[in-house]
Amino acid sequence: MNDATARVRLESMLSELDRSIGILRGDPAALRDRSAADAGSDLVDADRNQAMLEVATRHRRSVLEALRRIDDGCYGLCVDCGRPVPEGRLEARPEASRCVQCQSRRERRR
């Protein structure tokens, strides 16, 4: 995926994440822009809401890091080993920062 395409996809993801985070936090501006379907899916459970907020915030951070890698000219290179991240992985997850092998190693250590 070229940098321009990646940037467009990442910026779109960032916009959606910001909207979702605003809704999860109860931001009045985000709530005003909700559709009727979104309004019907209010989260009642505070723990579930907090977990979703944490996931969205982590995802937002990874999108911002990917945009920085584009700016730095190293987008598409594994942050651990420096090898290219496979094109298919970037298509599926434009915010991916590691090749498959390094990501697998990282997940096994957790």
Results as ranks from 00 to 15, higher is better:
57 T>D: 11
51 A>Y: 02
5 T>D: 11
46 A>Y: 01
107 E>L: 01
88 G>F: 00
79 V>R: 12
2 N>Y: 02
9 R>C: 04
43 L>R: 05
84 P>M: 00
41 S>P: 00
56 A>E: 15
107 E>W: 01
35 S>F: 06
14 L>S: 08
87 E>R: 05
16 E>F: 03
86 P>H: 03
110 R>W: 04
1 M>C: 04
47 D>S: 09
23 I>C: 09
52 M>G: 08
53 L>V: 06
29 A>I: 07
84 P>V: 01
53 L>P: 06
47 D>L: 07
1 M>D: 09
44 V>R: 09
108 R>N: 03
109 R>S: 15
87 E>F: 10
47 D>P: 00
36 A>E: 13
34 R>E: 15
106 R>V: 03
10 L>K: 02
109 R>I: 01
29 A>D: 15
35 S>D: 07
65 E>A: 15
57 T>R: 12
106 R>H: 15
54 E>T: 08
3 D>Q: 11
39 A>T: 07
32 R>C: 02
24 L>G: 04
43 L>F: 07
106 R>K: 12
33 D>C: 03
87 E>W: 01
104 S>F: 10
42 D>T: 06
75 Y>H: 12
67 L>Q: 07
94 P>G: 13
85 V>E: 01
3 D>G: 06
16 E>K: 04
35 S>A: 02
105 R>I: 02
16 E>R: 08
59 H>L: 11
1 M>W: 02
105 R>Q: 15
108 R>T: 05
103 Q>D: 09
3 D>K: 10
62 S>D: 15
76 G>E: 07
77 L>V: 06
22 G>P: 04
48 R>N: 12
105 R>K: 13
110 R>M: 12
87 E>A: 11
40 G>F: 03
31 L>A: 12
38 D>G: 14
65 E>K: 11
35 S>K: 04
106 R>Q: 12
110 R>F: 12
94 P>Q: 10
106 R>Y: 15
103 Q>P: 01
95 E>N: 13
103 Q>G: 02
79 V>P: 02
2 N>W: 03
68 R>W: 11
47 D>V: 06
24 L>T: 03
9 R>D: 10
37 A>E: 13
18 D>P: 00
35 S>C: 05
44 V>W: 01
5 T>N: 06
5 T>E: 12
69 R>T: 09
29 A>W: 01
67 L>T: 11
13 M>T: 03
37 A>L: 09
63 V>L: 08
75 Y>N: 12
51 A>H: 06
93 R>F: 13
103 Q>Y: 04
97 S>L: 07
31 L>F: 03
20 S>N: 10
104 S>E: 13
55 V>F: 09
24 L>D: 04
49 N>Y: 00
79 V>Q: 14
50 Q>D: 13
7 R>I: 06
49 N>K: 14
29 A>H: 05
110 R>S: 14
12 S>L: 03
93 R>A: 10
108 R>C: 00
61 R>L: 12
77 L>F: 14
32 R>L: 12
66 A>L: 05
101 Q>I: 09
40 G>Q: 07
16 E>D: 13
56 A>N: 13
51 A>S: 11
17 L>I: 03
15 S>Y: 04
93 R>N: 11
35 S>G: 15
3 D>Y: 04
105 R>D: 15
69 R>G: 10
15 S>G: 07
76 G>D: 08
